[in-house]
Design a protein around this nucleic acid. Structure first.
Length: 271
DNA sequence: CAGCGCCCCTGCCCGC
DNA sequence: TGCGGGCAGGGGCGCT
């Protein structure tokens, strides 16, 4: 479900009801996510104030003065803000209740997500330590990206989804960025010219920013914490459009599998 | 280290 | 209508 724009939409959505609020109670109905939720989390969090809500890659970071609650939504997770006594439904695994009467509810059918706690500095936390730059920062520049390309022999699509190179670009936006940049997903990374890398970097930023503006992409069941769907799905040029005509030239969109993930492209527009 | 394939899990859609 | 197979927005991990 969530790539960077969806996680960012979630972060913005929960902030008004969660920031500076005190945790009153934590209910865990299902501990088994990607990693087991610490059994001690309810007692750890009780009474703590969430004093910052940020994002690193696709991880949401809820800071308290004792440590960070780290939430990942995996493929199918979402967070909802609900009135405290809303009855739970299937796959509603965790509730975090606040003093202000609102509830932060974690829902994740496939349970590929995670909810972890760390008291060490967030930058050295194991899962975050080796991550590449955020795509929407200046650190993710054409020069940087082209240097990364030159030393890699994988396809450009696979490189875009490698968190050591750049974070937050998942399958939808990798395909869409390559489409907009007129680069085939199968191109070997080190074959990109500086101009192509520059263009690709620019388009990744443009597409992610536009997707954030539109509340992300709702394919099946993603929605913001207030229940609103994301509207970027209307902008998709290639993702999920196998067999349909390319909007620019009419050639049917192709679908192939790379690294166990679907890639979509126009064989006329992309080279 | 780079590259690659394997999984974790549920739900839905499609073809028979 | 029922059932089996394939596929889905992620990404850490273990192997070569």
């Amino acid at each position: 479900m969530p790539e960077l724009p969806e996680v960012e939409t979630t972060r913005k959505g929960i902030t008004p009801k969660v920031l500076n609020q005190t945790v009153q109670k934590v209910i865990i109905r299902q501990h088994q996510l990607r990693w087991e939720i610490p059994t001690s989390l309810p007692e750890t969090l009780a009474g703590l104030v969430i004093n910052k809500i940020s994002r690193r890659a696709k991880y949401l970071l809820l800071k308290t003065n004792k440590g960070h609650l780290i939430i990942h939504l995996g493929m199918s997770g979402n967070l909802k803000i609900l009135p405290r006594d809303t009855p739970p439904q299937k796959h509603d695994h965790v509730d975090i209740e606040f003093d202000n009467g609102w509830l932060l509810r974690y829902h994740d059918p496939r349970r590929f997500g995670a909810m972890l706690w760390t008291e060490e500095p967030i930058k050295t936390f194991k899962l975050l330590r080796h991550l590449g730059p955020e795509p929407l920062t200046d650190e993710f520049s054409a020069d940087y990206f082209h240097r990364q390309c030159l030393k890699r022999k994988v396809s450009i699509k696979v490189l875009l989804m490698d968190n050591k190179c750049v974070v937050g670009v998942g399958n939808i936006y990798a395909n869409e960025s390559l489409s907009k940049s007129q680069i085939l997903p199968t191109r070997i990374a080190n074959s990109l010219s500086l101009q192509e890398a520059e263009n690709l970097v620019k388009n990744i930023k443009v597409i992610l920013e536009k997707a954030i503006e539109q509340g992300g992409t709702t394919l099946k069941d993603f929605s913001a914490p207030d229940g609103k769907p994301g509207y970027f799905v209307q902008q998709l040029a290639v993702y999920g459009r196998a067999g349909q005509d390319c909007g620019a030239c009419g050639t049917p969109i192709q679908k192939i599998i790379q690294a166990q993930r679907a890639s979509y492209y126009c064989s006329t527009c992309q080279n």
